[in-house]
Each structure stands twice: as C-alpha cells, then as structure tokens.
C-alpha cells in the first residue's frame, strides 16, 4: 500500500479520468472546522505517491472533482461557499483560474457531469443544489427542495440530465435537470444521509449511506423500499463509490475508520474486504477507472492511501 502524508486532514480523493496515475485530493486544516484548505494533485509512482502540485485556499476544502473535458482542470468546493477551478499545469501555490461564489454556506459536494462533460453540480449546506458551466460566471440553475444541509449531489453516469441528491433531511431526491422540481423523493433512511452514488452499470440504481450506519440500494422506480440493505459499518457511512468495473461491487468508508469493499453477488457474505489502514475517520474514497481493483482513500489521519485490491481467489 502506497501512502502520502498530507499536511491537513483529508476530505476527498478522486482519480483523474484522463491519466491513470494521477489523483486529486482536497484537505482541510483542523478537520475542516476552521482554517485553510489545500488542493493536492498527486501522482502514484512506482514505490510511493508524489505531490505534483498543491494549491492553497483560505477556507477548508470539502470535495473535489476532475473536469471531464479538460484533463488539467479540477474543481473543488469550499467551506466559504465558493467553488474553485484549478489548472494543474499552473505552478504550485497559484490561484484558481476561476472561483464561483453563489452558495451562502459550506459546499460539501461537487461532481462533474460524465455525459455532457461541460457542466458540474454542487450541493451545499445552504440547502440548494446548483448546476454550473465552467465557462459561465453564474450558475445555470438552482434547485431548492431539501430542508436541511445537502451532503452529496451526483450525476447519473449514463443519463445527461439525471442526478441524485441526499440530505440531512433524510431524503434521497432524483432530479431531471430540465425540470424545476425533483422527479422523486425517497425517504431513504431514518437518519441523515451523507452520501450517494449511482451504479455504473444500472442507471436505475442509486446507493445511499447514512448516519444510521447502513448502506441502502434503491431501484429509483420503486421508492417504497430498498432492494438491499448492507450492514457492516459501526458508525456513519461517509462516502460510497460504485465500482467502475463490476456491477455488483461497491466500496464505502466510514466514521468507524474503515473501508469496506462489498460484492452484492455474494449474498451470504457480501463483505470481501474490510480495511483498517487508517487511524481516524475515513472520508474520501475512489476507484481507478483505468486499473481494475486499484483504489484510493483519504482520512482525517492525514494519510492518502492507494492500493490494488487484487482479484478475489486468484492467489493460490
């Protein structure tokens, strides 16, 4: 397992969709409660992980996403309500090439559209979701329906207009960006919902993770009950990422300091790996699209970790 020590507490990590060895990671001083933020651009090298670039911000950074249309651009969302666009070719310590300032509270989630590739979406503690085009100075559209902080808003990987959002109001909402109202509201958990993701192989399926420690899998056509509930974490589930290589696999990280890799195809025992390589809350997680089984995680223990899961059973 390769490790990188970040100066601040990790918040989010994402592999580049263009270069297999590159990843973006955002970190915040003092656990993101107060202090500066730092955007890292890291490279996975033969024996370790090296910092390619670093960019500093005044307030903490909570989430980041790579541009799908320009391999040099990364967007990160900040505690001060702004969203910064960074150019990874610029010198370290440079300024963002753009900063969008409309949200009035912490922006906890940012996600680039995988289909149209020219927009990204943000979810904020000001209870609004905004869609942006990096070329425009103002947001394209604002959605206000949630009744509490929004913790995650994620585009569908298949449908250009569809996105899902989850909130502390305990609902999962499915939206069509052309409509003003959500298509569907699912009361997905009995506690705050901190994360969601789409199945990359099934565009009807959304996975949510909550303070209630469970992961629930939803067929968005049938909102009355989850298709599956995965239990295994002992504290709130902080982030979920569905595998880009397998329909049945997903990974989650939690305030219980662990990362769990799940394979729903194994009905009796869906947990195929429980990893406790971090010593504080694990908050960032991603799969490498280019390398089957390669994963990255980051934690409040200031470690960014990259490892290859390996193929189950290959080793005899």
């Amino acid at each position: 397992m390769k490790r990188f020590h970040s100066h601040f507490n990790g918040y989010s990590v994402e592999f580049s969709p263009f270069e297999e060895q590159r990843l973006a990671c955002v970190t915040s001083q003092h656990f993101g409660i107060i202090g500066n933020g730092r955007q890292y651009i890291l490279d996975v090298l033969d024996r370790d992980i090296g910092a390619f670039k670093t960019f500093d911000t005044r307030d903490g950074l909570y989430d980041c996403t790579w541009s799908e249309e320009n391999e040099c651009h990364v967007a990160s969302s900040s505690g001060d309500g702004s969203i910064k666009i960074w150019d990874t070719q610029a010198p370290s310590g440079g300024r963002p090439i753009k900063s969008f300032e409309e949200h009035t509270k912490e922006v906890y989630s940012v996600d680039w559209n995988l289909v149209t590739k020219d927009t990204f979406i943000t979810g904020s503690w000001d209870q609004s979701i905004k869609i942006w085009n990096p070329r425009m100075d103002r947001s394209l559209k604002t959605f206000r329906e949630h009744r509490y902080c929004i913790y995650s808003a994620i585009w569908s990987p298949r449908n250009a207009h569809l996105f899902a959002s989850v909130s502390g109001d305990r609902t999962l909402k499915i939206w069509d960006s052309r409509d003003n109202r959500s298509l569907n509201t699912i009361k997905a958990h009995d506690h705050e919902i901190l994360t969601c993701d789409w199945n990359k192989y099934n565009d009807k399926e959304v996975v949510t993770g909550s303070v209630d420690k469970t992961i629930r899998i939803w067929d968005i056509r049938y909102p009355d009950r989850p298709t599956t509930i995965l239990r295994g974490h002992t504290y709130a589930v902080r982030r979920i990422k569905c595998s880009p290589h397998s329909e049945s696999m997903l990974a989650s990280c939690s305030y219980d300091m662990s990362v769990i890799v799940w394979d729903r195809a194994r009905e009796q025992d869906p947990i195929i790996a429980r990893m406790d390589h971090h010593t504080e809350f694990v908050v960032g997680l991603d799969w490498n699209m280019f390398i089957d089984g390669q994963m990255a995680s980051c934690s409040w223990d200031e470690q960014v970790c990259v490892w290859n899961l390996g193929r189950p059973g290959q080793f005899r």
Binding site: I34, G35, R58, G79, D80, G81, E101, T104, K105, E106
Partner: peptide
C-alpha cells in the same frame, strides 16, 4: 451564516 471568504485572513 457561513462567513465571508476573507474570514481566515483575520483568523
């Protein structure tokens, strides 16, 4: 409210 972008400068 979340505060102004310059807040940390003061901090």
């Amino acid at each position: 409210e979340c505060s102004e972008p310059n807040a940390l400068g003061n901090f």
